[in-house]
Simulated assay, not measured.
Amino acid sequence: MVLRLSLFVVLAALAGAASASSPDAWSAFRAEVRSACLAAARAQGMTNPEVVTHPFGSQSYGIAVLREGDDKRICVFNKATKAVELT
C-alpha cells in the first residue's frame, strides 16, 4: 500500500512538471518576459532594443539581455510577482 501511494505521488509530480513545461507554456513565458522587459527598457529611454530572452530563466526569475547600440542592460523578471528590474 505504501509503495502504491509513493508511486502515485511521484507520477503525479512528474505529470505536473511535464505539463508546466510544455513548449507552448515556455513560449508564452518568454513572450511575457520580453514584453515586460521591453516596457521597462523603454521607460528608461531605450527606443528599440534587441532583446535576447533566456529560454527558461531560473527557478524564480526570467532573464533577458537588452542591447541598443552601446547600451546594454540585463532584465530580471520575477516569476511570482511579475516585477521587472534592469541593471
Rank of each mutant, 00 (worst) to 15 (best):
M1F: 07
V2K: 13
R4S: 15
R4N: 13
R4Q: 13
L5Q: 12
S6E: 14
S6Y: 09
F8L: 15
V9N: 00
V9F: 09
V10G: 03
L11V: 10
A12C: 09
A12W: 05
L14E: 04
A15H: 02
G16L: 10
A20W: 02
A20T: 01
S21G: 06
S21I: 00
S22T: 15
P23Q: 06
D24H: 06
D24M: 05
A25M: 06
S27P: 02
S27G: 15
S27N: 15
S27T: 15
A28C: 00
R30G: 05
A31I: 01
E32V: 00
V33A: 02
V33S: 03
R34M: 06
A36M: 04
A36T: 04
C37P: 03
L38Q: 14
A39L: 12
A40R: 10
A40D: 05
Q44V: 02
Q44A: 11
G45Q: 09
M46T: 04
N48T: 11
N48H: 10
N48L: 07
N48F: 07
V51E: 07
V51F: 12
V51A: 09
V51Q: 07
T53G: 03
T53M: 07
T53N: 04
H54K: 05
P55K: 08
P55L: 10
F56R: 13
G57S: 01
G57I: 01
G57P: 00
G57R: 01
G57C: 01
S58C: 01
Q59S: 03
S60N: 09
G62S: 08
G62D: 05
G62F: 11
I63E: 11
I63M: 12
A64C: 14
A64H: 12
R67E: 15
R67N: 13
E68Y: 14
E68S: 12
G69N: 12
D70P: 04
D71S: 11
D71Q: 13
K72N: 07
R73D: 04
I74W: 06
I74V: 09
I74A: 08
C75L: 03
V76D: 02
V76E: 02
K79G: 03
K79V: 04
T81Y: 07
T81N: 05
T81P: 03
K82D: 07
A83P: 03
A83K: 13
A83V: 08
E85H: 05
E85A: 13
L86S: 02
L86K: 02
T87F: 01
T87N: 04
T87W: 00
